[in-house]
Design a protein around this nucleic acid. Structure first.
Lengths: 335, 335
DNA sequence: TGCCATCGTCGATGCGCTTCGACACCGACA
DNA sequence: TGTCGGTGTCGAAGCGCATCGACGATGGCA
């Protein structure tokens, strides 16, 4: 293994000088700097992460807590993770993956073992049991999602309330008077998952303020569940003309089932989805959607984290505005 | 921060004794052990990861290199990652995420900074440029996938050749005489992605040995691409009765399009997919499939890695046998 | 020419842990 | 009773780095 001493010897300087060349924390003459940098390159020197962490109490590692359930949107989670790790690398940090399954104790462990410098937490619930622990941790923490009492924690997410509102507005402006929300599986609501709750609230409020009939159903992603859900909705209100789908997993099944029933999209029923654009474009009838900006959220989460690490201490809550793209799946209802 | 000294003081023993209690590398009297363990618990002590890494040259971290492309099956990647991190935690290790985008240099960096104890690499290509570097690294390495020359590296994956063979066999036994493979996007083949190549080879060989007409197409996952692909296949051989789909992303579009054409599954055309079981069950017509055992592969990868870390030096290549589940989407062709 | 400020470099120290050799104690055996 | 082997514990060293105070060199100014 190549150490800082080897580099120092090769360059004919003291180890501390090498350290200062790398960190830039003291001025170095151009000559010495070049000498040292050449030696570093020649020897292929990389500082030992453990030693560095020990001496500086910085690990250059960000921990990310992800949900590993399959009832969540895997594609979105993946996209988020991807952009987070890329953004982290851009700041010379690595990403450590933790699972939500490990519970709050894992957060403790990471914090007190000095495994990571900061935590990013996905799949936040409205009354998340991890929040009090996170507050006590005195590590920078960024939540993806917004709990009921985020006091002192940074949060970033799509503004799901506004997203729901945008969906309702779009349908209302097309002239729909009776719409329904097909949401995530019951388990997601039961956990009080932040985004599901916020979307539902936005949906109900927007519908009420526009005086539109609005039903909402939770729906597992099996074909049977989708079918039963539609049965239910159509029986309850045969005049239903618009569907807001906040559950990407059911989209294929839902569209198949609608056709099966002889309901054409958008002639007989409009569908608007909350899903990544790539998914919206993938269906026979391309879907009007509100995009889930997972990539943007991931990048923002890392940026906020880095800002906290740089000493920016005030926590911020950042809600990204929704972007609705009109495609083929929504139209005015036939009168 | 609580250090080993604090624990030692609280327990009235030497720091080294605490260390030995934790590691179990020397025998400790039951009395002392209890004393120390109580103090550890009371103080909430967790060893400092950096210090530990420095002193023992073990980080208890596994690095996983994942592909972040969206032309791959995200769900499978996610499932793999999930099981890998879970398995790693079961061995008291953490998982560090790297992206393939960072290239071979990132592997260098991780190795020579002593950030991780071992590497697991996904999305291996037949002539993967990372292989030579990995061999030079003298870290334990486990590949997910099998390159052309794995000499000296451990590999684990589904036996895609056998999987293709099983698909062909299933259709052949049902009486199909003309079948086609719809594979991943051209980019995947262009990269020489290991699993795609192996599946294609298995498909061609099995078809030839059974004297069945077999075509194969690469297909991007846009709806247009799927449609064009089917146009092409049906024009080339109007007698086509069986489809093997090795590209989960196109399944929804494909099934929609078939129905659009008036081709019923399985009455007019049989479809067999290579995809996770959950996905196979999610469609209106549940799909006969060969499962992608991502979870099993993830677990195995970690187990192999741990074995290497424990001194088991001989690399192994482990190919998991395919499991074909018959569902509603395959049947004998009408004569 | 002499003094001081500044810049660039060095040496020493300590971060928290593991590990090695040393050593005290105990029981067993002669 | 004296000695020997084994068991359980201790103290010290060192892992590779960042950081701080110190110090020599250099240049500017009087």
């Amino acid at each position: 293994m190549v150490t800082i001493n080897d580099v120092a010897n090769a360059a004919g300087v003291a180890p501390s000088t090498v350290s200062y060349v790398i960190s830039g924390k003291r001025s170095i003459s151009p000559k010495t700097r070049r000498l040292v940098e050449d030696s570093i390159r020649k020897l292929g020197y990389h500082p030992h992460a453990g030693a560095r962490a020990l001496a500086s109490s910085k690990t250059n590692v960000l921990a990310l807590v992800v949900p590993l359930r399959t009832d969540l949107n895997v594609a979105v989670v993946m996209e988020f993770v991807a952009s987070a790790v890329t953004a982290a690398r851009a700041h010379d940090h690595d990403l450590l993956l933790l699972t939500k399954d490990e519970g709050p104790a894992a957060l403790q462990r990471v914090a007190s073992s000095a495994i990571a410098d900061a935590l990013m937490v996905m799949d936040v619930e409205t009354a998340d049991p991890r929040v009090p622990m996170l507050l006590a941790l005195d590590l920078p923490v960024v939540l993806i999602g917004v709990p009921d009492h985020p006091a002192g924690l940074s949060c970033v997410d799509l503004d799901f309330t506004a997203a729901a509102s945008a969906c309702v507005a779009h349908l209302a402006e097309l002239g729909h008077r009776s719409i329904a929300l097909i949401g995530p599986s019951p388990a997601v609501y039961r956990r009080g998952t932040s985004y599901a709750t916020r979307f539902l609230r936005g949906f109900d409020e927007a519908a009420k303020s526009r005086d539109i009939r609005a039903a909402s159903r939770s729906c597992a992603h099996s074909y049977e569940a989708v079918s039963a859900c539609l049965d239910d909705l159509l029986a309850t209100d045969p005049g239903l003309t618009g569907l807001v789908v906040h559950n990407e997993a059911v989209l294929p099944g839902l569209l198949s089932d609608l056709r099966h029933r002889g309901l054409r999209v958008p002639e007989d029923i409009s569908v608007i989805a909350v899903c990544p654009d790539s998914m919206a474009e993938q269906h026979v009838v391309s879907l009007t959607n509100v995009a889930i900006p997972a990539e943007e959220v991931g990048t923002q989460a890392v940026e906020m984290t880095m800002r906290r690490l740089a000493g920016h201490t005030t926590p911020e809550v950042r809600l990204l505005g929704p972007r609705l793209t009109r495609r083929e799946s929504t139209a005015s209802p036939r009168s």
